[in-house]
Structure formats: structure tokens, C-alpha cells
Design a protein around this nucleic acid. Sequence first.
DNA 1: GTCTATACGAAGATAGAC
DNA 2: GTCTATCTTCGTATAGAC
Lengths: 191, 191
Amino acid sequence: MAARTRQRMIEGATRLLAVRGLQETSFSEVLHLTGAPRGSIYHHFPDGKDQLIAEAIDFAGARAVELIDSKAGSSAEEITRHFLEMWRQVLTRSDFRAGCSVLAVTIATDSGALLDRAATVFRTWRSHLAESLRAGGLSDDDARGFAAVLIAASEGAVALSRAERNLDPFDLVAGQLRKQVRELNEAQEPG
Amino acid sequence: MAARTRQRMIEGATRLLAVRGLQETSFSEVLHLTGAPRGSIYHHFPDGKDQLIAEAIDFAGARAVELIDSKAGSSAEEITRHFLEMWRQVLTRSDFRAGCSVLAVTIATDSGALLDRAATVFRTWRSHLAESLRAGGLSDDDARGFAAVLIAASEGAVALSRAERNLDPFDLVAGQLRKQVRELNEAQEPG
DNA sequence: GTCTATACGAAGATAGAC
DNA sequence: GTCTATCTTCGTATAGAC
């Protein structure tokens, strides 16, 4: 079960990043969480921790892209609602312990390679979201701008709710964002 | 220079949190950055690292509150512009290496006490900002909602620009936020 | 592919001299 | 208030057997 162990370690690292941050995402914790054998570490990830983290970033990035793309073809309001619901579930399912794995790396790493990886993920989210929003009724500029605001504000709102350990800040921000996309859409297609 | 050493350590920890995250804000790094003597650690912070971090959170929180309050009496647009400029300077002055100290702790800690401390800071920012925005022309609801969006989106936008190591994401988000507060204000005081 | 054993450094923390 | 010395734990990483 070579490939399986490897993939389980990546998913475990992704989860640990979201909940405990970069430094606490140690090999020991990943092994403990996944039950993977200790000998697997440098067999599957010969470049060590940075390689595991890089793959965790890519995995988290790709998973979110799938969720974004799954709503391609819907209205801008529906795309926004769905994106926010994804983050809301990250909070509620973890009892406010989890956040964004990619953000966790961005804030705690010194490695330019990992920063580049994180930047690629964020840029991919922005472009996929913007394209869907455009197809969902927004102008090019509004779609590009609102995609960036939606991602930035979601990341921040998740962090605020993690700190407070309740949904108040997140729901307040989410409500504002949904109102905003509605207004952008109405401005675009009056009547 | 007792009090001075203590304060220098707190400010050094605040800076390290912003640049390198919670785990890399070690005593060794704080001493190296501030030149404080090793014997000062448990003299000034008998409860150890958590105490130093807690004071760093409070310090970062209070410093930002001062900046927010310094614009009390201005228009909502001006308050927004100023708040965003504060974060923009965090990025440019650090060559995209620094972010928000309070966010860094929120994402990486297991300690409920530190989370509470961070939550208090975020709530304080929200309430001061909301009050200023209300005085600056927004309705109660708009002020409360936009304050939350402004903080959440700023935190997220700073992180996006740290990852990309350029101002594009931050400036895109900032432009949207400034447009939004302008619209809220016009809706409030038509004509 | 997986195992044990181990090297090496750095972390937080404590004790006791000065 | 500050010093050195030290304890303990944990991190990443490597070597070599199975």
C-alpha cells in the first residue's frame, strides 16, 4: 500500500496544518494521526518536511479548486454562498479549531519555495473564482475584484471566528459579502 | 533598566510574531533581536513564553487601536483609507515579510488563554472601528458590518501579498473596500 | 517498504551563584 | 537583575538491518 500511505500522510499533514500550524505539523504528529509507519517518511518524502508540506499545500489547493469549479455555471450569488459555506463548515466541523492550511504555511515559513507554492494556490483560487463569477453575471473587473475580496475576507473571517470560538464574526462578514455580490449583480443587470 | 528591557522584549516578540510566526518566536530569537540579557527571561516573565506572547498580543492590539482612534472624527472613507494604509506599510516596510502578530498567534496556538487574548484584540478593533465609521457617516448596521469586513479582508489580503511577495492582491482588495465604503456612504447620505 | 537505533540541534524551563 | 550550567523533551535527519 505504498501510494496509499503516502497519500494518507499528505492528507494528515494538510489537516494538521489547518489545526495546529506549520511547526506543530511534525513527522511524529503526522505518523500518530495517520498510523503510517515511521520508515515511510524518507522513503516517500526524500526531501524531508518541506516536501511533505509542499504536497500538502498542493493538495489543499486542489481540493478547494474542485469545490469552486463544482459551482461553475451557477449565479454569482450562488457561487459566493457556496464558497462561504465551505469555510463555515471548516469552522463548525472542527469546533473552531481548524482554518486554512495554506494560510498557516504562508504565515510561518521562511522558505521561498513554500511561499511560491502558497502563492500559486491563492492565485489559482482567485482566477477560478473570478472566471466563475464572471460567467455568473459579474463584469470582468467586478469578478476579479470580488474574487480577491471573497478569498481575503474569508481567510480573515475564519481566523476571527477561530479566536472567538463562535460564528459571530464569520457570519457577520459572510452576510456583508453576500449583500455585496447581490448589489454588484444588480448593477450589472438592472431590473 | 528593568522596565526598559521588559518592554523591549515585548516589542521584539511582537515583531518576531509578525515576521516568523509563533513557534519561531523563541526566547533565543527575542534575546538576539533585542540584546536583552538571558537572565531577564524568567525574571520579567515568570510564567514563561505564554506570558511574553500574551503581552505581545496586547501590545500589538493597543498599538493598532491608537492608530484607529487617531482618525476618529474623520469621514468613513478617510478612516478606511487610513486603516488600509497601515497594513500596506506593514508589507512594504518589511519587504513582504511581516504580517499581523495577532493572526500569527491565533493560527498556531493551542492555548485557550492566548486565543481569548487574541479574540479580545480583534473585538476591540471591530468596536473601535465600527464606532469611528458610524461617527464618520455610516448607519449602525453598515458600520458594524463594514468594520468586520475591513478587518477580515485586510488580514487576508496581507497574507495573500506576503505569499506573492508583491502588492497586487492587497491593492486589489483595498481598492474594492474603498469603493464599497464610498457606496455605503452615498446610500446613507444621498446627493 | 518498513524497521530500529541514533546523531545533532534547539526548544522551554529550573537552580543556584554573583 | 543578570549570569552560567543543566535538565528534559522534541524536532529533523541519517544509517543500516530486515
